[in-house]
């Protein structure tokens, strides 16, 4: 206890004060300035309880009390819900408090994850945050922390709102679009089995949207989504999805066009998807037809394709292999 000034408030007091003042802020009362100060102060004290300070480690029992208060009062969620009214530094404090509480473990249990599973709205508030520039990045930080946990990732992935990502990643404000893409990528790569199952069940809907990203006018969206597509298809867990993708002639056409994109980086990413079509030992007839129709052109094209990458051995081996595969394709004897 400090020698001078008031003793530190208990977690229950902090939660109570914060809740009251947040309510004032939300109502846009006249006392908003004072409330805003109080909110900031409470957030700082909470952060100190959870993270400790320079000379003090966090105290397990106080942390447990605070967490319990945050669940019971519903404050954890209302902080996220009303993030907009909290000042700039306070928003960051909320993120840090949120992420710390979310990581809490009791044995093998994650109490906050369980809490959010029964209060799923918080995930969608966070997702919706991408539509409000003032809170977008803070929401992104918290959302990515949520989807580290498979149960929470599953809720987001299987929701209708997941499709909003296809819009968010193309937003003109690049810092927000980048953040959204980072979350989107995490969702599609972190929990392999969950994702494979999801993509299997929702193949048509997901890839219809995904194709739009590959046609994007935004250079970064196009480049990054193409790269992610390559990673997804080449992941063993997604074998079924991959087989399905490479059986469709329209996908091959798209990749062949992207091979000729004006950007060498995009061409290169397209190559990594294109190679799967050619290397597939069980090509469907429409795929074989397209390859045969363009047999000579493809061989010429690949012979001259990104020859400046002479030190990339794997790339050159793959290229040689593809050329051989295409050359060996036989026209049906009919």
């Amino acid at each position: 206890m400090p020698l001078f000034g008031k003793p530190h408030k208990s977690p229950a007091d902090i939660v109570k004060t914060l809740k009251e003042n947040l309510a004032i802020l939300v109502k846009h009362d006249k006392k908003a300035d004072k409330a805003s100060d109080e909110v900031s102060k409470c957030l700082v004290s909470m952060k100190e309880i959870l993270y400790g300070s320079n000379d003090k480690e966090p105290h397990t029992e106080t942390v447990a009390q605070l967490a319990q208060e945050l669940y019971n009062s519903g404050l954890l969620i209302s902080l996220v819900e009303n993030l907009q009214v909290i000042d700039f530094e306070g928003k960051k404090d909320v993120c840090q408090i949120f992420n710390n509480i979310l990581r809490r473990q009791i044995g093998t249990r994650c109490p906050t994850v369980e809490y959010f599973c029964s209060h799923q709205e918080v995930l969608f508030i966070l997702l919706k945050g991408y539509e409000t520039p003032q809170v977008a990045l803070n929401c992104g930080i918290m959302l990515r922390e949520c989807i580290r946990h498979e149960p929470l990732a599953k809720i987001v992935l299987h929701s209708d709102d997941f499709h909003n990502f296809f819009g968010y990643v193309e937003m003109s404000t690049f810092d927000i679009a980048s953040d959204a893409f980072a979350t989107f990528k995490d969702l599609l790569t972190r929990h392999k089995v969950l994702v494979a199952e999801y993509l299997g069940q929702n193949y048509d809907a997901v890839f219809a949207d995904y194709e739009k990203l590959l046609h994007s006018d935004n250079y970064v969206t196009k480049r990054q989504s193409l790269k992610l597509l390559g990673e997804l298809l080449l992941d063993r867990n997604n074998f079924t999805v991959m087989t399905r993708y490479i059986s469709k002639p329209e996908n091959l056409k798209l990749m062949m066009n992207l091979l000729r994109d004006k950007s060498p980086n995009i061409q290169f990413e397209a190559f990594h998807v294109f190679k799967v079509f050619v290397a597939n030992p069980n090509k469907t007839q429409p795929i074989v037809d397209i390859l045969l129709k363009n047999q000579t052109k493809l061989i010429d094209f690949l012979n001259n394709f990104q020859n400046d990458r002479s030190d990339d051995e794997q790339f050159n081996d793959e290229k040689t292999y593809l050329i051989k595969q295409i050359r060996d394709l036989k026209k049906p004897t009919s």
């Binding site: 530094e89 990045l137 003109s172 404000t173 690049f174 810092d175 980072a182 250079y219 970064v220 950007s263």
Partner: peptide, 29 residues
């Protein structure tokens, strides 16, 4: 580079150069 942009948006101080807008123009950031 994306990391830098992200972090710059989390700082707000008169002695730190603010990024007023960030976007993609053709193949340039």
């Amino acid at each position: 580079l994306q990391g830098e942009l992200h972090v710059s948006k989390l700082f707000h101080h008169s002695s730190i150069l603010p990024y007023k807008s960030v976007f993609i123009a053709e193949n340039e950031l």
